[in-house]
Design a binder for these strands. Structure first.
Lengths: 239, 239
DNA sequence: CGCTGTCCTGCGGGAACCCGCAGATCTTGC
DNA sequence: GCAAGATCTGCGGGTTCCCGCAGGACAGCG
């Protein structure tokens, strides 16, 4: 049994190396990669089935790497090990998990014991292990009371990319008015109206304000926008 | 001579602890704090003169902590130790350095030797040490050919906050048209017109697009927006 | 002094945005 | 089958944004 570690911070990498060796004495090679791109290559060439993956990395982040790895071998087991439980990351991961795949999501702030336990559970027992906190974010983002639905999230991304209503309508095969309806929904959910309603009418541009709020609530982050940007270019190129 | 370490990652913190002890054998206490807020408190109570500070932290980031520390004792020597050389961080640091203060900016990707050298240079020799790469960003952001000028940066932040032109005009004591002029400048500098000029007229909302581009170029980041948000609230409260 | 360059300002208009209203689907459940 | 709910759509309008044009203020320079 081999394990691939994808992590761009040297200290964390060696820490992981040790943790893996300690938690999984039965495992053979432990390969390391220091960013998403080389992680994909390693996973492919070494026929890796178990991956520990950081999310925030230079060059190519963990979500993209995981996506291509899973595209090639959907039965790969991936344990995400991240500093953040930003909704943008949680949602990004949830979006790419193949049907029936086993994965885990552990925060770096968790204890070493928790990490080791997760390593065994995911790689040996093929059991999904999601950190409490991350699970909380997931729940909240699914329960449509507070969190955004998928459609709302998608239109948020489109807006954050800087697309016009017309462009979004075209892209999503909707009428202009429908796009604007969804935008109103989005503004409602993000609470844009509260902050711009009272004494300060006309002080906020709802569209840009929504992006600002989403960013500071960690619903969006720069890497999610970049990912969307690439998808956009791809789609417009093929179309 | 005492040193305060402000760093929210446990591994990095113990690594720093060791590096400081090795590089500065003459130093006495080495205090640790795991976020900006407690860092401020420690610096105040322990009368610290030398600080090693991470930038990206939960709760309260390094720039804010450094600002309050320097506000209380401008002769404190601070060595920033960060993963990123984002323009937003570089500019944020440059904005808060008091006149004549000594500080350093070292990337976490640098070698341990470089870190130790920087520790000695800053704390013992009172010499400013700025990483090559960071220096490069500084230069580029100052040379107004590519980078944004201060006015352009400020209006970018205002736009990213979601303010309307009118609100910005009011805030900055300008006419509406002047704000729009500056916006045009900004769009020019960020190259918004290139991507929305050719075949795709009307596909981008310039205002939101500018924010997207600034984010992916790392001119802006979430923490810069949050900082601006707090400044805004403060200003509108006092006014 | 006049010229040039830079910045601020007002005016006007076309485009995009925000949204209430109302009708048209389509699903869900009794 | 029908009522209730959610979603999509067109229409109309008020507001904001984007920007060309033109004029004014001010600094630097020969």
């Amino acid at each position: 049994m081999d394990v691939l570690i994808v992590e761009d911070d040297a200290l964390h990498r060696s820490f992981l190396q040790e943790a893996v060796r300690a938690a999984l004495p039965e495992c053979g090679h432990v390969v390391e990669a220091e960013n998403g791109a080389s992680g994909e290559v390693q996973a492919r060439s070494a026929r890796i089935e178990n991956v520990v993956m950081d999310l925030q990395m230079h060059e190519r982040n963990g979500i993209e790497a995981a996506r291509t790895i899973w595209r090639e071998r959907p039965d790969t087991k991936i344990l995400f090990w991240s500093n953040y439980s930003d909704e943008a990351y949680v949602r990004g991961v949830a979006r790419i998990v193949p049907e029936g795949a086993t994965y885990g999501y552990v925060l770096k702030s968790a204890s070493e014991e928790r990490l080791k336990l997760a390593l065994r559970s995911v790689f040996i027992e093929s059991q999904c292990v999601i950190d409490r906190e991350v699970r909380g974010i997931q729940q909240k983002s699914l329960g449509n009371s507070l969190g955004l639905s998928d459609v709302e999230y998608e239109i948020l991304v489109d807006v954050a990319l800087g697309l016009t209503d017309k462009a979004i309508a075209h892209r999503k095969h909707l009428s202009l008015r429908s796009v604007q309806n969804r935008l109103q929904q989005l503004y409602e959910k993000l609470g844009i109206y509260e902050t711009s309603g009272h004494g300060n009418e006309g002080w906020f541009n709802l569209r840009t304000r929504a992006v600002a709020v989403a960013l500071s609530r960690r619903v969006l982050n720069a890497s999610a926008i970049e990912r969307a940007e690439r998808d956009l270019k791809e789609a417009s190129g093929s179309h």
